[in-house]
Design a binder for these strands. Structure first.
Lengths: 342, 342
DNA sequence: TTGAAAGCGCTACCAC
DNA sequence: GTGGTAGCGCTTTCAA
């Protein structure tokens, strides 16, 4: 019992195979009568076109490749919203999503492109100097980076604007009369992997603090999980100068909750005894104790935009091209973790 | 600049196209000399076979479809280890992974099979009565269920053995001299969605408790997040009978941490004032405060096994077929959240 | 408005 | 051990 082909549809509808094809693609005018007959036949046979054959003939797979940072480094739940919203955007345009793990390095890219497994590629977790970027730049298949490497080599980049996020966070602490800021560094592994967003945030953050005459220190890397947060918080509390208004900035979304827990456990109340601003999704910030003032770049927005860019590259429309480096505005939401102006 | 084809390789190596094909597939003996020449040519051209053409000619896509429960119900971080290990298993066998979201329902299955997008399908988050299962059973494409519906219709099922997990958890509380057990129900949404593992755990749990003469109550659904856990814990503590040895069982992996936090926040120490046993991955259990005694079905083991089963179906080997319903043994690990025998 | 037919790049049969 | 060649099921010219 082998599947029906467009030939079967053609025979049943009493038309040629090419007519079936044109009815499906809409690439040439078809009489109402013919269209109906073909659609009927398609329905009766529950015909579906063979993807391989279509790809071979049309040079279009209708698949997007997605390179995800699994492997030793997979960074907790933050990944899911990305994958999820990419899957939805793809589906909305009749595309499938092919998953490739980042631990393959550029081999994955070469495979996707070389075998014509997909029409375009989305790549996450870009390193500042990323061996895959130069490779990606030479492929026939368009590649969109979610993140901004040192040298994008002409590739389209989409991400949250971390510089702006830094300005918002530090600015808020300056505006609310803080005396000093401590920024909790990402975990060692992230720092060592040279992930692009580390310095895109830290650089501007330090600069803005200097600008606003706010003493500002960056901690040692804060390791994942409860233990890392505890250690970092102990250190911060030990260094506190009596009476100062201290602001903590947590650029690592995964650290926000553990840090708040550590503070609570030590009887230090964010919003009363010191301030905390996190960089994380709103949903996480709201669910903290207390709800935390955050700068938010929603994963969904970033991946939706990345998909839009990719689709534009796949068929450019009259509307101008998307920006090559496309940074989305973050948003500061005030909640209860920042001390009010005295 | 269009990609090289096997014809180019053949010309460069001075052999026929079919020889190139046979060198790559190893499906017929090739002289050492020829093999070398072909491999050289492949290397020089960095030739990669076109996936569509190959699929069309061989009726094999070398792709596995993965149906993931994204959508409103996506249940936090628990999903990633599954996806991740499936991706690795696939890669190890030279397969790609195509992602389909569960919100498409059986349409996704029909598309994967009807268009020959993949050779086999893995489906997660099975409902006890799942509309997709009867559909899956009629496809030409083999489907493996991760989970066990009421009527598997001959489909292969792989999952943790929740009945055994229940026995382990309840048994441990009985053995350590508890007077009463409270089981924290999954969130409303999970219960209403009729997910198969809810009753596969609860039924046996209640039965074993009865067997051991352990009074046992199942709570109202405990909603996601801190708030849900707080409410549930308040209720449990309010119902406590002074002096009793109370055991809490938390079958919902995502609730384990919030529940422990809620207890801690109320000055109730698990392992001293009452006992907690969670059903969750070891990594999560270890990272709790205190480390929690758990029954663990590791996602990785389940998905690896599911992939093995799928690969067996794709090319059956002399070794017998895998069991149709394949339940993996869970493991109880004692940590610090269960009160020692008095 | 429609049909016939030439490929797309590969696999696998049949021949030598 | 190797080569020739007929498809796989679709899209897209070219012709009518």
């Amino acid at each position: 019992m082998t599947a029906f082909t467009s030939k079967d549809v053609a025979r049943l509808a009493g038309v040629s195979q090419s007519t079936v094809s044109y009815v499906m693609s809409g690439k040439r005018p078809i009489s109402e009568e013919t269209r109906r007959r073909v659609h009927d036949a398609i329905e009766r046979l529950t015909y579906q076109p063979n993807a391989g054959a279509r790809a071979l003939a049309s040079q279009r797979t209708n698949v997007v490749g997605l390179v995800v940072p699994f492997g030793p480094s997979a960074d907790g739940a933050g990944l899911l919203p990305f994958i999820e919203s990419i899957a939805f955007s793809a589906r909305a345009q009749d595309y499938e999503v092919l998953l490739v793990t980042a631990d393959e390095g550029s081999a994955g890219l070469r495979r996707l492109a070389g075998r014509s497994l997909c029409d375009g590629i989305l790549m996450m977790d870009i390193q500042t100097e990323d061996e895959r970027v130069p490779v990606a730049a030479t492929l026939r298949t368009p590649v969109i980076l979610i993140g901004v490497p040192a040298e994008p080599q002409g590739l389209h980049c989409v991400d949250m604007d971390f510089a702006q996020a830094a300005r918002l966070a530090i600015g808020e602490l300056a505006d609310t009369g803080h005396d000093r800021v401590v920024i909790l560094q990402h975990p060692t592994e992230v720092v060592q992997r040279d992930l692009n967003y580390v310095d895109r945030f830290l650089g501007p953050a330090v600069a803005v603090a200097a600008d606003r005459r706010l003493p500002c220190r960056v901690t040692e890397p804060v390791e994942r999980g409860r233990a890392g947060a505890n250690r970092a918080v102990d250190q911060v509390l030990a260094d506190r100068i009596p009476g100062e208004r201290l602001g903590l900035v947590v650029p690592n979304a995964n650290a926000v909750q553990p840090v708040l827990q550590a503070l609570n456990a030590r009887g230090v109340a964010p919003g009363r005894d010191l301030s905390v601003i996190g960089v994380c999704m709103d949903a996480w910030a709201e669910n903290c104790e207390p709800p935390v003032t955050n700068v938010s770049g929603e994963a969904r927005d970033v991946s939706r935009r990345a998909m839009q860019t990719l689709f534009w590259l796949l068929d450019p429309t009259p509307t101008g091209p998307p920006p090559v480096v496309d940074l989305l505005e973050p948003r500061l939401t005030r909640r209860e973790s920042v001390m009010p102006i005295p």
